[in-house]
């Protein structure tokens, strides 16, 4: 019954981030992997999802301006 594991691109793409998070059921994981085994476009989507995640995770922190830092430090000292 391997046919039951076939899913369309839309479904595979919808699950890619959860797939990367290991947050989908083993059964769905199999379906996604099967789809990726033959769909080049979705492999591209998967690569891009990885790049997006890395981009978000490593994006530089918002810089704290010196005068804001100073004000907050004073605030903490006066607590």
């Amino acid at each position: 019954m391997s046919d039951t594991k076939a899913i369309p691109c839309s479904e595979a793409v919808r699950q890619l981030w959860d797939y990367l998070d290991h947050a989908i059921q083993p059964e769905d994981q199999e379906k996604v992997e099967k789809h990726l085994s033959f769909c080049r476009r979705c492999c591209g989507e998967l690569e891009f999802a990885k790049e997006m995640r890395a981009f978000l995770a490593t994006s530089t922190a918002e810089e704290i301006p010196p005068y804001v830092k100073e004000r907050l430090e004073r605030f903490v000292e006066r607590l």
């Binding site: 922190a61 918002e62 810089e63 704290i64 804001v68 830092k69 907050l72 430090e73 903490v76 000292e77 607590l79």
Partner: peptide
Amino acid sequence: FQELVLAELPALYS
């Protein structure tokens, strides 16, 4: 408390 939070201010503000 002050010692702990001062080090965390940049991350909190971000």
